[in-house]
């Protein structure tokens, strides 16, 4: 069975560190980035199934990442995680094709739940849904 390719981008290193292990356990291959420019470069190289990105970052914002990822692969599921959640941002993200948006602070299980849902929609059998 093919592993689900996940790119996790957040300029807070802890986010990547903490989320990665849980996602790996679910059968995902996870690449974590702290720099949006590097992440976008990687997206251009490799086809990801799921992109999880923060919005407010210094070099570029998550909406740009979303647009870049969708342009290269319209099938990609982009999950927005943000500390600056507003109704406007939510609409902008959804309009630009985001799969879902979740506000910080969230529980790791919340995000894993979203990833599971996305994986199911991608037609992947989820190995071990880690719902609490």
């Amino acid at each position: 069975m093919k592993a689900v390719e996940v790119l996790l981008l957040d300029d807070e290193p802890i986010v990547g560190q903490r989320l990665k292990s849980g996602l790996v356990k679910m059968g995902c291959t996870v690449e974590t980035f702290e720099n949006p420019v590097a992440a976008m470069a990687r997206i251009a190289q490799k086809k990801f199934d799921i992109v999880i990105t923060d919005v407010m970052m210094a070099e570029a914002n998550g909406i740009q990442v979303l647009e870049a990822a969708k342009k290269l692969n319209p099938e990609v599921k982009v999950i927005i995680i943000t500390g600056y959640a507003t109704a406007e941002l939510a609409r902008e993200a959804m309009e630009k094709g985001a799969y879902d948006m979740i506000a910080k602070p969230f529980k790791p299980a919340d995000l894993r739940g979203l990833v599971v849902r996305a994986m199911q929609e991608l037609g992947v059998q989820v190995v071990a849904p880690t719902e609490e």
């Binding site: 807070e12 802890i14 986010v15 903490r18 989320l19 292990s21 849980g22 407010m56 995680i81 500390g83 600056y84 506000a103 910080k104 602070p105 969230f106 529980k107 790791p108 299980a109 609490e132």
Partner: peptide, 21 residues
């Protein structure tokens, strides 16, 4: 309040990581 969300999120994720694992 928004900016606080980032450290809070880190705390939340770390605390849950400890809880879970």
């Amino acid at each position: 309040a928004h900016e606080l969300n980032n450290p809070l999120n880190n705390i939340m994720l770390t605390a849950h990581a400890i809880l879970e694992e």
